[in-house]
Amino acid sequence: MPSGEDTGFSFTVDKPKPATAQQIRYLNDLYIHRMCDVAPQAQVDQWKTFTTEQADEHIDRWKRSIPTGEDYPGPERGEWAYNRLSTIGQDFADNKFLPLDVSA
């Protein structure tokens, strides 16, 4: 086939989508639930380099690693770290990281 001839074949490769602001916030909440502290800026900066897929993988892994119920280690109402959680993060902390439709 001569060089430059159109073969009619083409494809595009989608660039991976960067992690969303909501995913970054969720990762931050999960960090607080796990560590009872706010993530260092270097950690947040690393999350900002994640693709949506990488962020989802971390979120899923961290969610499975956080003890629930009476074993929940996260912050409680009135603690400094608790106040750094999003509203939904505070709801989960109040419910000892159990699903919100399950009583703690």
Rank of each mutant, 00 (worst) to 15 (best):
F9Y: 11
I32V: 12
P75E: 01
D94C: 11
Q46W: 06
E70H: 02
T68K: 12
Q90C: 13
I66R: 00
G78R: 04
L27D: 09
S10K: 12
E76H: 12
Q43C: 05
G69H: 01
L100K: 10
T20K: 12
V102K: 01
A55F: 05
E53H: 01
I59T: 06
L100R: 07
I24K: 08
L85T: 10
I66M: 00
K15Y: 05
K15A: 15
S3Y: 11
T49C: 03
A21W: 06
Q90G: 06
N83F: 09
D56S: 10
D60Q: 05
Y26A: 11
R84F: 14
A42S: 11
F11L: 13
W47K: 03
F97Q: 02
I24C: 09
R61C: 00
G74Q: 04
Q54P: 05
F92H: 15
I66K: 01
P2W: 04
H33D: 03
L27I: 11
S86R: 11
Y72K: 03
P99K: 02
D101L: 01
S103C: 04
G8D: 03
D6Y: 10
T7C: 10
Q41Y: 02
E5V: 12
Q43V: 15
K15S: 15
S10C: 13
L30G: 13
I24S: 11
L27Y: 08
L85F: 09
Y26V: 13
F9W: 10
F50G: 05
S3D: 13
P40R: 00
